[in-house]
Computed example of a mutant assay.
Amino acid sequence: MAAVAAPDAFNLGFIGAGNMAESISSGVAKSGVLPPASIRTTHRRTDRRLVFQSFGVKILETNAQVVDDSDIIILSVKPQIVKKVLLELKPFFSEEKVLVSIAAGIKLKDLQEWSGQRRIIRVMPNTPATVVMCVGEMATKKDEERVTSLFGAIGKVWTADEKYFDAVTGLSGSGPAYVYRAIEALADGGVAAGLPRDLVLGLASQTVLGAAATVNLTGKHPGQLKDAVTSPAGTTVAGIQELERGAFRGTLMNAVVAATKRCRELSQT
Rank of each mutant, 00 (worst) to 15 (best):
A3H: 09
D8C: 14
A9D: 12
A21Y: 12
E22H: 14
V28E: 03
A29N: 07
K30Q: 09
S31D: 02
P35I: 07
P35C: 09
A37R: 11
I39F: 07
T41V: 05
T41D: 00
R44M: 03
R44C: 02
D47F: 14
L50P: 03
V51N: 11
S54F: 11
F55R: 03
F55N: 03
T62F: 10
T62V: 08
Q65A: 14
V67F: 01
D68Q: 15
I74N: 01
L75N: 02
L75Q: 00
L75P: 03
K78H: 05
L87D: 05
F92Q: 10
F92C: 07
E96R: 15
V98A: 12
L99T: 01
A104G: 11
A104M: 04
L111N: 00
Q112V: 00
W114F: 10
W114V: 00
R122G: 05
N126Q: 12
P128R: 07
M133A: 04
M133H: 13
C134V: 06
G136W: 06
K142C: 02
E144W: 09
E145V: 04
E145P: 11
S149I: 01
G152F: 08
I154P: 04
K156C: 02
T159H: 15
A160M: 13
E162Q: 09
Y164M: 12
A167F: 14
G173S: 08
S174A: 09
A177G: 15
Y178N: 00
A182Q: 00
A185W: 02
L186K: 01
V191Q: 12
R197Q: 10
R197S: 08
D198C: 03
L199N: 00
V200A: 02
V200D: 00
L201M: 12
G202W: 09
L203F: 11
A204Q: 02
Q206C: 10
Q206F: 13
T207K: 00
A213V: 04
N216S: 14
L217D: 09
T218I: 07
K220Y: 13
H221W: 14
P222Q: 04
G223A: 13
Q224E: 12
L225A: 07
L225I: 09
L225W: 08
K226N: 06
S231A: 15
T235I: 14
G239N: 06
Q241F: 13
Q241G: 13
Q241P: 02
E242S: 14
G246Y: 11
G246W: 11
F248M: 01
L252I: 15
N254C: 04
N254M: 07
V256M: 13
K261Y: 08
K261A: 15
R264D: 02
S267V: 04
S267R: 03
T269L: 01
